[in-house]
């Protein structure tokens, strides 16, 4: 089962934000959209969610996604609207809304929420207001809510962008909890090294187009990758075999 994107084009007025994208995304795996700002990554996530209109086709397990409310898709935005006066537990419980109805968590759901709060290290601060969480804690609360949703697909927009290294890893480990449940994960990420470390599939986007897609290993070691970044990156391989991608000053440095 996969998500099949065919000839996908999205326009905001005159501006073409996504330009004729065709792509397959495997289910149960972590796919990372990588690219500079303005590449159309966030727009891509929004059309995958099914909320924004598009031309072409996006088929999720054989069903067109636009306004299809039967899908269970979790969405973790880059800058969430943080609700006033809501505790962490209530916030995570919102994830059950689709299954139990709004504000009607079943006893089973409560047990699940408890388990998730413990898993994401939010238990103990679950009575705190979400407005008082730090950036890393808020990100974990968002992922906890997504876990509570028991989704088939989760879309994460820059889940690590505002976090320090320690919290980045902690959040990414939490996202891996979703993978253990068999959830398909699609995230955008600036940091291609982190993307290579966690994601199985990488899609390189630029100016609304997909330049390159494939397994993380293929993409990282392909020559196309450097072109996608205007030759402004260097790829190194650590002794452990892990690839590290860092910015370089430009064309001068060909390795």
């Amino acid at each position: 089962m996969t998500i099949v994107v065919t000839d996908l084009t999205v326009r905001y007025g005159e501006k073409v934000v996504l330009n004729d994208i065709s792509l397959e995304i495997s289910s149960g795996r972590w796919t990372c959209l990588v690219g500079p700002n303005g590449a159309g990554k966030t727009t891509f996530l929004k059309v995958l969610l099914g909320m924004a209109p598009y031309s072409g086709s996006i088929s999720d397990q054989g069903v067109e996604v636009f306004k299809n409310h039967n899908r269970n898709v979790a969405f973790v935005p880059q800058s969430p609207q943080i609700p006033q006066g809501m505790t962490v537990a209530e916030y995570v419980a919102l994830g059950r809304s689709k299954k139990d109805g709004w504000g009607n968590e079943s006893l089973k759901s409560r047990a699940l929420i408890h388990k998730i709060l413990v898993q994401t290290h939010l238990f103990g601060m679950h009575h705190n207001l979400v407005t008082h969480l730090s950036g890393g804690e808020m990100q974990r609360a968002l992922i906890a809510r997504a876990l509570a949703q028991e989704p088939e697909l989760i879309l994460l927009d820059e889940p690590t962008s505002a976090l320090d290294l320690h919290h980045q890893i902690s959040v990414l480990n939490n996202i891996e909890l979703l993978k253990e449940e068999g959830v398909t994960i699609i995230s955008t990420m600036h940091d291609i090294t982190l993307a290579a470390m966690f994601a199985e599939q990488i899609v390189i986007m630029k100016e609304g187009k997909v330049l390159l897609s494939g397994s993380s290993h293929e993409v990282i070691h392909s020559q196309e990758l450097k072109k996608a970044f205007d030759n402004r990156i260097d790829v190194y391989t650590l002794d452990s075999g892990r690839p590290v991608i860092i910015a370089s000053k430009g064309e001068a440095k060909e390795k």
Partner: peptide
């Protein structure tokens, strides 16, 4: 409660 979130989050819920 859903309107206290962003539209995309509300939609996904």
């Amino acid at each position: 409660d859903g309107l206290m979130l962003s539209d995309e989050e509300a939609y996904s819920l």
